[in-house]
Design a protein around this nucleic acid. Sequence first.
DNA 1: TTGTCATCTGTCATCGACTGACATAAATTA
DNA 2: TAATTTATGTCAGTCGATGACAGATGACAA
Lengths: 213, 213
Amino acid sequence: MGLRERKKQRTRDALIDAALDLFLTRGYEATTIDQIAAEVEVSPRTFFRYFASKEDVALSLTADEQRMLLAELASRPESESPFTALCQAMRSLLQILREADETEAGRYLRCQKVVHSTPALLAGTMRLVKENERKLVAEVARRLGADPCDLQPQFIVAVFVSVALACFDERTQDPAVLARRLEDLLALAERSLCPGWDQPVRSGAAEPASAPR
Amino acid sequence: MGLRERKKQRTRDALIDAALDLFLTRGYEATTIDQIAAEVEVSPRTFFRYFASKEDVALSLTADEQRMLLAELASRPESESPFTALCQAMRSLLQILREADETEAGRYLRCQKVVHSTPALLAGTMRLVKENERKLVAEVARRLGADPCDLQPQFIVAVFVSVALACFDERTQDPAVLARRLEDLLALAERSLCPGWDQPVRSGAAEPASAPR
DNA sequence: TTGTCATCTGTCATCGACTGACATAAATTA
DNA sequence: TAATTTATGTCAGTCGATGACAGATGACAA
């Protein structure tokens, strides 16, 4: 990797760190792009060559997580049922966070604090999650041998996403506490859902929604 | 009601209609506040006295719906289980939409089209839904005689919200089609969830998450 | 009717997010 | 080193949003 690439990566990381620090101390809306750029000693114009918007820099880590979740799901064995695979992917993601080095873990914590204390960023997170949800549905549909437009894969992913989001609802920043909360919620989901609910419908039974009665 | 009040209401409605029309024809971001204000023949400054932001005018109807959903839930009889009450509240809301006069129905349709074709507005919708979710959780917790921080009310509302959102996911604008889609999804949820999953846990059984083992 | 008061509105000035255009500086490659 | 690509800075400008002030308008009492 050339000098240019490394320099860009360093600038990018510096911008994220500076932004998160300023967001934490002064608040998200009170922080200006000029301040972030000044901290890293680049021009404000350069900031926008790295990030599409002020929101983008705050949510860049969140976007990374979403991409990672999708990747983890894709790497789960086909033998796992869709919901199980989603849960395991989520566990893997949390494990990665817990194993991260101090720099990354710190970034993650600051990001969590900022996002959860800023309505605009919570909304942005929802947008990212919803965008990723489409891709998760596609993967789950593939595993079920169903169409992504069918209700079942959408429902399965919707249940999973609501559980995952419920984990982050409060001020749960510590990955360990978060993992505990996730397990509690998954156990509750387990108790509430019929066995085999996320399995393909038997060929003998009538298709539920696409061809009712 | 005085002349002043009526005038304000007319201005407000005119701003919403003008905004939705412009958003539909030119697109949300391509439309400026100046254009909306000019259409209604008020100053741009006045626009911001009626709506906090450009997003606010686009989502004012969505915000109304959220408030109505909460009100419908509150009016459901205590005898209904939480999830049933949520579903019935949603059905009532759809019924209200289907019974609305032409003016309101048209506004609703244009609002739906605009929101679903604009990522920023989808994000905003998510924010509104999430904000309302808190209140729904509080009401469900009250019905269960549980604490709003317990996992069960949060899970129940989360499942409901994900189902409700799945209804709106695609380009389903027609309330009748939307109602059909809702029924299909609720039927799927019914099949997937254990009987009594949204009932208070029996006193004999161990509390699931708040005091495990 | 008139005068007072509260409220609504327009004008002006300003800030901050964001973008396009152009010139410069730096790294890559030949 | 020369030529090319790519990153950065500067500048100008648009648009969303807000505060301050002054004028207009409806509400209300004498």
